[in-house]
Each structure stands twice: as C-alpha cells, then as structure tokens.
Design a protein around this nucleic acid. Structure first.
Lengths: 71, 71
DNA sequence: ACATAATGTACATTAAACTTAACATTAAGT
DNA sequence: ACTTAATGTTAAGTTTAATGTACATTATGT
C-alpha cells in the first residue's frame, strides 16, 4: 500500500493545494486525492511533486512497511 | 518527458519481461510498454520495479533533461 | 533445420488516473 | 458578523494505464 507525505511537505513550504497543483500541472482536487491516499499518481507526477517540494521521490512516496526495509 | 532504464537494469539481472512482470504483478506487455517509454506507470509500480531491480526509483525513472539538475 | 523461449506490436476492453464542476465546511483577516 | 481563501468531498466525464488475446519476428539451444 502506498503512503506519502505530500500534505506535510506542502505545509512546510506554505503552498496551498492550488499552488502546488499549478506548479505540477494538475488540479487542486488531484492534489487533495493524492494527500488522502485515494490513488497512486503517475511516476511523472510523483517526480514533479518531489521536485516542487524539494525532496527525493522515494522520501515523498513509499510502499507501506517497506520504507526502512532497503536501507 | 519521462525516461527510464528498465530494459538495461532488467538485462543486468537477466530477467525476461515475463519474469519482471511476475515480480511486480503486471503483464509482460506492460513491461514492454514501459521499456518503450509508451506511458508513465503509477508510482506504486515504479517503486515495485525499483525494488525488483535493486535501484533507487529516481535512478530508474527521471524527467528528460532533469536527471543531473538536482544533484 | 527444428523447436522453443523471448520479444515486438496491435487491437479491443477494463481499470484507474485525472479533470471539471459544484457545493459545503473550515480557517483567517477586517 | 462578514467576506474571502482554503479545504473536504462527491459525482460525472475524459484520458491514459494496464489487461487479454493473438500473431509475427528474433534469438537460443540442440
């Protein structure tokens, strides 16, 4: 199961959902859905989000129970 | 534009497209499409592929012209 | 040369991502 | 209290990812 810390990282940058959506070319609803964990975005969008939020993509999204496994 | 080195990494592990598909729960056609760059898989699938190929997800997939940008 | 595994491609269909629009609720500022 | 920005959420629609099937081409091995 996929987990993410988009909401947390977005808050850290003081971006609204709309702000972030504009930066990565999706609507604010898409951001909201992702934050809720409603679906798994494309890797393209995930990479854009990671870039916008200045964090590694694998730190922003990870598979449940596997985050520390590979360290 | 999204780029990847799935084919190269798969070869390095001597996996067939079917092998890799089974490991990440998709069909061999999906692997073939990804290798051709025909579409952008979900972050969930990208993470599974990275794990199966023992490489960081951001080393496996990256946005054109941005690979070295963030170093 | 033959058999078989692996890959390339294409088409029709299903599933999931993403959009657009709408409305209700919460937070922030005056 | 009022206004406005931000968020939560839902439904219906479009686009794209992913499947299933099928057949042709390219290795690989004997």
């Amino acid at each position: 199961m996929l987990k993410n810390r988009v909401k947390e990282m977005r808050a850290r940058h003081s971006f609204t959902q709309s702000d972030l959506g504009k930066r990565v070319d999706v609507t604010r609803q898409t951001i909201a859905f992702i934050e809720k964990g409603e679906f798994s975005p494309s890797i393209t969008l995930a990479l854009k989000l990671a870039k916008a939020l200045k964090i590694e993509v694998n730190e922003l999204f990870w598979l449940e129970g596997e985050k520390e496994d590979e360290k």
